[in-house]
Design a protein around this nucleic acid. Structure first.
Length: 560
RNA sequence: GCUUCCGUAGUUAAAUGGAUAUAAUAAACCCCUCCUAAGGGUUAGUUAUGGGUUCGAUUCCCGUCGGGAGUACCA
């Protein structure tokens, strides 16, 4: 039920529509004031009355009913209190009947959303800089899916460019098949790092030739390349599995290397392509942007060219409602240019392209650099977190079964949660102290709350309750109820703003409210009248928390 | 230079233009005969700065200062 709309329908202000009123309805800073509030300042000009008087008049004219228990005027605000037990019953009923689907919706049915995320570079291991795109994209995938959209997850592989010529060159000079097979992706990366520090002029030339050979379909060069590619995918797929993310397409840059001509032709046809300093560009001066480079002076394509081809392909193949690019804000200009070029080409779907930008990750002593070998590998971070979780379990709960599985859930969950808790645009300075912290606003805190709720429910099994209906609600109980009721709205907001952090914040918020309730109100040892309801409230909290965390790719252990 | 993002307790962060700016963390102290102490409680602000719009600005606009990113043949 949409309470804002319900309230708006009851309020009559001359010359203001119910929709506008619903839009203006806000949530007061604390529950004692009310559950919803209408600020009346806006109406004072139209009605020629003071906001205080308007609120007072409206308060008297609006009657209470089953839903609205009380209407009061305060300082120019019209405050509404809902019928608490009514809200509690409706919310719990809904969670009980919808279960794992609570919070989902069908608003997206019939619409497809493409999400371009993670986008690994072939032959490079995953470092913590890749964590954000992977988990933000993975969460958006689940969130849109939950809202009924068909989602296409695209791993736009970085599998094109002269660095692959360099890699093959380095392998031919220094590499040994057995060593690479043993050392896997890290051995390949070592070759790349070595090339960047030791390559001679001749080797650079050789590398360019190898890249050309890959392009022209040379058998040996392609075999080595495909081998490196399969090593990379095998490596990252293990990480993807642990993080709970998946993809429907691995079409990367190479896939588009033969699909660019139509875009180039169309740019020419529409008179958008200009030759400048020997290169073919689209002039974006009128939009105060540097030109978008389409072809180099030697005729070769560029990043932008392939991205335009990819956009065409995705529109034709998936007919998307939206196409998201989960890529760091460093590429703001690139995407602004691409989207503008599509607009200039007359594609009305250019407006459906969204760059979901996020902040950079750096180390305490500065930026990371793969070429210099100054990196923190994601796999190491995950492993250390899982190890720490295991030690904590050994310490606190040594008799637990499946300690390894639980440590995996806790450790991995902690890494994901840490990456998703803040607004995505914020820069992050990586520190092990922070990721390994399991106190406060963390994924562990939410998981612990679930385990606690679960423990209560285990003990409640088989108990008989006089009633499961809510009676007069205590403030702590009501806070939990309100929070539970707001989950579906939170999921929609997260999708609309492309902000998984809204879900993470929600999970902490609900956990805090539940813990307060848990601490202040006894559940199993309460009086008979409230025991049944409190158990239901605990069930509903556990269910909702699980739903929220699973949207982030975080598993919930029964015990920990 | 130009474009763009950011600046909130010691630290890290929250807040569709609304009421008394919300948390966590660090430090100190209190709470396990009662559902897991990975928990709960007590102790912190001139929202960088100067203007503007507004009944009302952390939020929107302009300037200043400080920081990040990008800025033609890499991706």
């Amino acid at each position: 039920m949409d309470y804002k709309k319900y309230i708006a329908e009851k309020i009559k202000v001359a010359g203001v529509s119910a929709d506008e009123i619903a839009e203006a309805i806000a949530i007061p800073p604390n529950t004692e004031m009310g559950d919803y509030a209408l600020p009346c300042f806006k109406f004072s000009k139209v009605l020629r009355q003071s906001p205080v008087a308007i609120a007072q008049n409206l308060a008297q004219s609006i009657g209470t009913d089953d839903v609205i228990a009380e209407v009061t005027a305060l300082n120019g605000y019209l405050n509404f209190k809902l019928n608490k037990t009514g809200l509690a019953e409706a919310t719990l009923d809904r969670i009980e009947s919808e279960g794992a689907k609570y919070g989902s919706s069908d608003i997206g049915s019939g619409k497809t959303v493409c999400i371009d995320y993670s986008s690994v570079n072939i032959a490079k291991p995953f470092h913590i800089g890749h964590l954000s795109t992977t988990v933000i994209g993975g969460a958006l995938y689940k969130i849109y899916n939950f809202l009924g959209y068909k989602v296409v997850g695209i791993n736009h592989l970085g599998d094109y460019g002269t660095q692959f010529g360099k890699l093959i060159c380095a392998y031919k000079h220094w590499g040994k098949r057995a060593e690479v097979e043993k050392g896997g992706i890290h051995a390949v990366n070592d070759l790349y790092v070595r090339f960047n520090s030791e390559a001679t002029e001749e080797m650079e030339a050789e590398a360019r030739e190898y890249f050309r050979l890959i392009e022209s379909g040379d058998k040996e060069a392609n075999e080595i390349f495909e081998w490196f590619k399969s090593l990379t995918l095998a490596y990252v797929n293990k990480i993807y599995e642990r993080l709970g993310v998946k993809f429907d397409s691995y079409n990367g840059e190479r896939f588009y290397s033969d699909k660019m001509q139509p875009v180039i032709d169309e740019l020419k046809e529409k008179g958008l392509l200009k030759v400048s300093e020997g290169a073919s560009i689209v002039d974006l001066e009128p939009y105060s942007m540097p030109p978008c480079l389409i072809l180099r002076s030697d005729g070769a394509s560029l990043y932008a060219t392939r991205d335009l081809a990819a956009a065409y392909y995705r529109k034709n193949t998936y007919d998307f409602y939206k196409c998201l690019y989960v890529v760091a804000y460093q590429q703001n200009l690139h995407f602004k240019q691409i989207f503008k070029v599509l607009e200039l080409l007359g594609k009305d779907w250019a407006k459906d392209m969204v760059h979901v930008a996020y902040g950079m990750v750096s180390l305490e002593d500065g930026a990371m650099s793969t070429r210099k070998g100054k990196v923190v590998w994601l796999e190491d971070v995950i492993n250390k977190c899982v190890e720490k979780a295991y030690k904590v379990i050994e310490d606190k709960n040594p008799d637990l079964e499946n300690k390894r599985d639980i440590a995996e859930k806790v450790g991995v969950g902690s890494v994901i949660f840490g990456a998703l808790y803040n607004n995505k645009i914020k820069d992050i300075v990586f520190s092990y102290d922070k990721v390994l912290s399991f106190d406060g606003e963390t994924g562990v805190y939410c998981q612990y709350t679930c385990a606690r709720a679960n423990s209560v429910l285990q003990k409640a099994k088989g108990m008989q309750f006089k009633t499961r209906k809510p009676a007069e609600l205590l403030p702590q109980e009501y806070e939990v109820v309100k929070c539970l009721a707001s989950f579906p709205e939170t999921v929609k907001d997260a999708a609309e703003k492309y902000e998984p952090s809204y879900i993470a914040r929600y999970a902490v918020d609900l956990s805090q409210k539940f813990n307060k309730f848990y601490f202040d109100c006894k559940i199993l040892t309460a009086e008979e009248e409230s025991r049944g309801f409190r158990v239901r409230l605990t069930e509903a909290t556990l269910q909702t928390l699980q739903n929220a965390l699973s949207l982030l790719g975080i598993g919930v252990p029964d015990k920990m």
